[in-house]
Every structure is written in structure tokens, then in C-alpha cells.
Design a protein around this nucleic acid. Structure first.
Lengths: 337, 337
DNA sequence: TTGAAAGCGCTAACAG
DNA sequence: CTGTTAGCGCTTTCAA
């Protein structure tokens, strides 16, 4: 394995100069730099990240902690982040919790990240006070995506407003019995979105003077299967809702499925709206409130990179816009036959 | 930042002993180990991976190269691999090519991986001869998932057989005009599956004595959008096929959509079958040939870990089983009205 | 613009 | 069972 010494010997210079030349530092003559570059290419020299990291204190690696890569939403954020990181020569260390509490514990509590990464990106997880404590002890830039955490650098949408938009869309169409599919507001994979969306839903009903029915709020676990399960119950009720607002497109897709199983037509018998604009949403003709998923990953990555390059960088809270996308799963309620 | 020296000083032992105790090596008295453990916990000591890597030559990190994490199929493989790696204390470095040729070039050609990882997992990409050359120069275990690469450690399904199973299912139902949706058999995101599946399709037709129609073979790019596009053409033909076999579920989902747009009923007017058993497949009632996606990731990770622990480990070719899953998008062809 | 020297924090022989 | 001694391959002062 060829090392920096081999290159130094080859160009008859010190390793210090070779190092400087290779990293593009100034104070190296053009001629020397050219010779170093040529030599290291010829010798097939590749610097050792371990050695560089040990000596410099930077690993040029960023940790990305994500609830579950198999969900399109999270994967899309990761992809956005990966692009930006790669463009800047940073590597991405993926920690996929996959609903495993012990995995979560290991990543956060055992300080797995210490001395290992230059920055941390936390996606769609609401760190516990304890975990936040650990994160801040890292002394490294941290950006949290999808959660509202005052004092921390965050990137998210206005979840309350997104939910309100969806609910208002249904209200405007004339619906009054509107079911809600959300998820646990506490737990291993918690983030602040579920509670904010629930509040947005309730708030809109209230503002419209529509009675709130606790029995129309169900837990869809933010998955297709969960949405299917919860919708079956909701739609099998004698006083079933004329519309369902699912706080995520995956749950909405579950709802579409439940409706079909029960022989209900969408949107004639029941309107369905989601949030996200999932990649599959258009194939289901799903009306939804879109959010810039990929972009959130990009912005988050850009944020920690900026922090890395700027001593007195202050945490920023970035809120990205959402937009109502009307497709064909929502319409005016039909008179019940 | 507390280092191993601090712990050594605290327990009044050498750093070597502390290192041994912490790594669980034998030849350390129980009492010493206990004291070291207690001390490092109390002092909040966390070893530096850079230093350990530099000294030992192992980074306890594995690179995972994937075409596109946002596709469920790839994300599921990654998740499988991540689980196994994490269980063994390895970190996962994610390289998401996302159709970007320059990204691919950088990862493979510029020896990004050298000195950075202990092993490499390549998912659903067929490395070029040049890339294989680089990979073997790494001198590290490499496992390739989803491609048939003699001489290399691989994990995959029998793509030819999976395609044949799907085609035979349609033939058995009585279909004779069977469209095929595949993808480029060369290109940035190539792997060997597309050609093997196409061959499986053609072979089955031939064996059944059914005429092959080149005009019924289309490129669906292995995506929903591509499948939709290609199916629109196929299904708009006056002599449209009575069934379509899509070489991936995502393309099959695109086909379902195209059928709906054209006012064709599935399966009455056109039968549709895919391959994968995508997480969404059951919600579309899609008949498919399932493959153990998650498991392929697990096996691949287990394979490189085994290689890492065994000097004279030989590359193995693992082939995982597939199974026909009949749902409701396939049936006997109807007499054309 | 370049070099010498001193680590970074750990592991790996080799002794004892 | 434990310690000593060398590094691993870079980066970073400090000089020149």
C-alpha cells in the first residue's frame, strides 16, 4: 500500500509538502504541486482517512440517523443529503433504526458517534432530552429534520399548517364528518409531526365550527398496513366519515385499499387526502399536501456543512413550503342513499 | 476528549492492558477488566476509530454501493445488510449513485474505498471489467448482490427462472400474446438481471411454442413511470397483448395505471404480473414472483463478515428462492369482443 | 516555499 | 497477566 512517504521520496520533497500540495493548501509552488499530483497518480497513492482523521481531528464523514430507510420518505431525505455531502467530499454513515429500540439506544447512548463523525443529521426522529444532551456533548454540528426543536438547527415543514390545509380542503368541499389517521405522539420513532398534524386537523374543524369526534381519530402508524387497519374500522362504522384525512400518504394508500375492500367508491363514497406527495401518490390519483422531501435532505446537509466551515455559526430553523395537490380522491360528499 | 491514556492512568495500568480489556481480548484478569470497564464508563471514554483503524488496519466499516436508495427494493437490501453489520459492530458507509455516472466513477475509479473500508457490498449493479479490476485491487472482501459474476461472491435469485415462472403462469392461463417490460441490458445502472429475465421470458414462449413478437417487448426502465410509458404504447396497439409480464413490480404498477387510463379492466382485459413482491404489491392485488429482498442484504453482509474472519475464505455464489404469488391481476384471457 | 520534528490515539509484537 | 516499545500514516507547528 503506497503511502505519503513513497510520494515524498519520489518527488524528493518532505511529506509535509506532499500533504499540502495534495490538499490544495496555498504556499506550494505550482511546479511542486504538479509534480506531486503526477507522482501520486502514477504511484496510485490514496491517502488514509484514518491517518488523516487522527492527525487532523476531522473524519470528513457525517452520520445520518433515520427511522427506516425502506420508507420512501426517509430514503428520499437520505438521498438528498447524500448528494450534497458527496459533492463536498463527505462520506455518509447510515444508522437505520428500523424500529429497534436497542439500535436507537446504541447509536445515541453509547456515543457511537463520538470521534467518528464531523456532524450528525437526525431525520424524522424527536430525540429525547437525554439524547439531546448526548448530541450536544458531541460538540459537533447537528441538524434535525422533521421536528420542531427550539434551540437546535432544524429543517421541516409547517406540519400544523399542512394538516390544516388538508382539513380545510375537505371542509371546503362540504365534508363535516372527517376521519383522521395519525400516529403515536410518543415512542421509539417519534417526531413532532404527528402531534402538530393532529392539532392542525382539530384546529381547522374547530375554526369551521364542526364538531370534533374522538372516535374518528385513529392510529395508522404512518404505514400503509396501519392505515389499512385503522381505515377498515373507521369505514365500517354505521356513521362512517364522508372523508378521511391521513397524516401521511402511505396511510392514505392504506385507506384507499380499505375502501375498495369494503366496496366503497373513492371519492364518491369517501374522500381521501394525505400528506407528502409520495412517489406513488400520483399513481393512486391521491390528493395530498406535498412537501419537498428530497430538498429537506439537501438543506439539512448543507446546513451542517456550513456549520463545519464557520466558527460562529448559529443554529437556524428552516421551514420549507407545502402545497395542496388536488387529484382525484377528493370531491363533494354525496347524499347518503 | 478523554483518551485511553486517561483510563490507563486512572486504573494505574498500561494503555495496552486497557486496550485489551476494552476489546474483550483474553489474557486480562477479571478484576482488571472490571476496573477498566468501570473507569472508562466513569470517565466517559470512547475509543477513536481513526486511531484504532490506523493502528490495526481495520476500520470496522463496510461500504454499500447502491443504485438508488429511494427505490424500495434497494432500500430493503440496505436495511437487511445494515442489521447484520450493526449486530456485528460494523458501520455502514452508503454510496448512492442515483443514476449519476460521475458519482459512480468517483466511487469506483478514484479508489475512494481504499484504506476506508474493510469490505464492500455492491447492490444491483454490474461492475464493468474495469471496476471489477479496481475492486479486486482493494484486496478486501466484496459481495455483489443481484448480478451473476462468476468468480465473485454473489447473492441473487435465479432471474431466468423467476421470469420463466411468471411467463409460464400467463401461458398456463391461456395467454398467447404476452407483452414484456424490461430494461436496458447495458448502462450506468446495469446489472445482469434484465438480460436474464428477458431470456427467461423468451425461453418460456419458445418452449410453449408461442410466437415471439419483438414489438411486444418494451423498455420500462424498471420504474413506475417507465412502466407506465411503455405500457401505454403496448396497450394502445390494435393487436394489444392480453397479458403483460413486467420484470419488476414497479413497472407492473405503471402498467396497472396505464390500463386504467385506457379504460381497460385488469385482469379481464389484460393480465399483469411482476417480479419482486414489492411492499406495495399486495395493495395493488398484484400477482408477482416474490424474491427475498431483505434477506439478500442480510446474506450479503454475513458473507463479507465471514470472509473478514476467515483467512482462506472462498467466494460463494448464493442463490435464494423465488415463489409465484398469485393475487388478482391475472386470469384467463377473455374472448375479445 | 519547504523541511524537521512532534505528535494524533491507538494496537501489536515481544518481553517478562 | 501485564508492560515496553514501536509504529500505523498522516497533519501541524515552528524554523529556515
Amino acid at each position: 500500500m503506497t503511502s505519503i512517504k513513497d510520494v515524498a521520496r519520489d518527488v524528493e520533497m518532505s511529506t509535509a509538502t506532499v500533504s499540502r500540495a495534495l490538499r490544495g493548501l496555498q504556499g506550494v509552488s505550482d511546479e511542486t504541486r504538479a509534480r506531486v499530483l503526477e507522482s501520486s497518480r502514477r504511484l496510485g497513492y490514496v491517502p488514509s482517512p484514518s491517518a488523516a482523521g487522527l492527525a487532523s481531528g476531522h473524519t470528513r464523514t457525517v452520520a445520518v440517523i433515520v427511522p427506516r430507510v425502506t420508507q420512501w420518505f426517509f430514503a428520499a431525505i437520505v438521498q438528498g443529503a447524500e448528494e450534497v455531502l458527496r459533492e463536498h467530499g463527505y462520506d455518509l454513515l447510515l444508522y437505520n433504526l428500523a424500529g429497534d429500540a436497542s439500535a436507537r439506544h446504541r447509536v445515541f447512548e453509547t456515543s457511537l458517534l463520538t470521534k467518528r463523525v464531523d456532524a450528525v443529521l437526525v431525520f424524522s426522529l424527536k430525540p429525547s432530552p437525554d439524547e439531546l444532551e448526548r448530541l450536544s456533548h458531541l460538540g459537533r454540528p447537528v441538524t434535525i429534520v422533521g421536528a420542531d426543536m427550539p434551540g437546535w438547527a432544524t429543517v421541516r415543514i409547517d406540519d400544523h399548517e399542512a394538516a390544516a390545509t388538508a382539513t380545510r380542503h375537505l371542509l371546503d368541499l362540504g365534508h363535516e364528518r372527517i376521519g383522521y389517521l395519525g400516529g403515536a405522539t410518543e415512542g421509539v420513532l417519534d417526531f413532532t409531526a404527528p402531534s402538530a398534524r393532529l392539532a392542525g386537523y382539530r384546529g381547522s374543524l374547530e375554526q369551521a365550527g364542526v364538531a370534533q369526534c374522538p372516535e374518528l381519530e385513529a392510529d395508522g402508524e404512518f404505514t400503509v398496513a396501519g392505515g389499512l387497519r385503522a381505515s377498515r374500522d373507521l369505514l365500517a362504522r354505521p356513521d362512517r366519515p364522508t372523508a378521511i384525512f391521513a397524516a401521511s400518504d402511505e396511510m392514505a394508500i392504506g385507506t384507499l385499499r380499505a375502501a375498495r375492500e369494503l366496496g366503497l367508491r373513492v371519492p364518491e363514497d369517501v374522500s381521501v387526502i394525505g400528506i407528502d406527495d409520495h412517489e406513488m401518490a400520483s399513481y393512486f390519483d391521491l390528493t395530498t399536501v406535498s412537501q419537498p422531501v428530497h430538498e429537506q435532505g439537501r438543506v439539512a446537509a448543507a446546513q451542517v456543512l456550513a456549520a463545519l466551515g464557520d466558527e460562529d455559526w448559529r443554529p437556524e430553523q428552516v421551514i420549507l413550503p407545502t402545497e395542496l395537490v388536488v387529484r382525484r380522491t377528493t370531491s363533494r360528499p354525496q347524499a347518503r342513499t
